Computed example of a mutant assay.
Amino acid sequence: MTEPDEPAPRDDGLGLARDIAKSYRGKGSPVPPSAKRRIRPAKPARGARDEPSLLADLLGEVVNDQGWDERLAAQRVFTDWAGIVGPEVAQHSEVIAFDDGEVEVRTDSTAWATQLRLLSPRIVAKLNELMGDGSVLRIIVRGPQAPSWKKGPRSIRGARGPRDTYG
């Protein structure tokens, strides 16, 4: 027969119930792991949307959903100007506006304004290549601002400008 300290055979449900009762009273061995109910970890109810993804991909989706593609492409004219025209030309010029396919550029000197006017067909082609065909129609080049003769200590009301001051 069995010893009093040994657990009863677990062939039937009654023996298993006795073992469980003894373990609660502090007598006998606890329920062996094989007799315990197996608990499986819960699978997350969330789908693939919670998979880790790159922030750039998420921002790209937001940009597409909001319809900001064209505006961001237009901003490339301002941010990538040095890469588009080269560092030397970018050092002497800056983009001041971009509206309705017209890029407005201000230069340091009239010589650089002339150079940019000569290079403008190439720059338009390169901008259209980068931003999409037909996005830039022309480049308006502005030279440096000339001093105004209309205001100041030596100005005369109703005068015709610098022609009246030099004899």
Rank of each mutant, 00 (worst) to 15 (best):
T2M: 10
E3Q: 12
P4K: 11
D5Q: 13
D5P: 00
A8D: 04
P9F: 09
R10F: 10
D11Y: 14
D11F: 14
G13R: 13
R18S: 00
D19W: 03
R25C: 05
G26R: 03
G26T: 06
G28S: 08
V31D: 00
V31E: 09
P32Q: 10
P33M: 01
A35D: 12
R37H: 09
R37Q: 11
R38F: 11
I39P: 01
I39D: 04
A42I: 07
A42C: 02
A42G: 07
E51M: 14
P52R: 13
A56P: 02
A56C: 04
L58M: 10
L59Q: 08
V62L: 15
W68V: 08
R71P: 01
L72C: 08
R76Q: 15
R76T: 09
F78E: 08
V89F: 10
A90Y: 01
S93H: 02
S93R: 04
E94K: 15
V95K: 02
V95Y: 02
I96V: 15
D99P: 00
G101E: 04
E102M: 12
E104H: 09
V105Q: 03
T107S: 06
D108R: 13
S109Y: 06
S109C: 10
A111T: 14
W112T: 03
W112A: 01
Q115L: 14
R117H: 08
L118F: 13
A125G: 07
A125M: 07
E129I: 05
M131C: 12
G132N: 05
G132H: 07
D133Y: 04
G134Y: 05
G134P: 01
S135W: 03
S135F: 01
S135H: 03
L137C: 04
R138S: 15
P144I: 10
A146Y: 07
P153M: 13
S155Y: 11
S155M: 10
G158W: 07
G161I: 04
G161N: 09
P162N: 12
T165N: 11
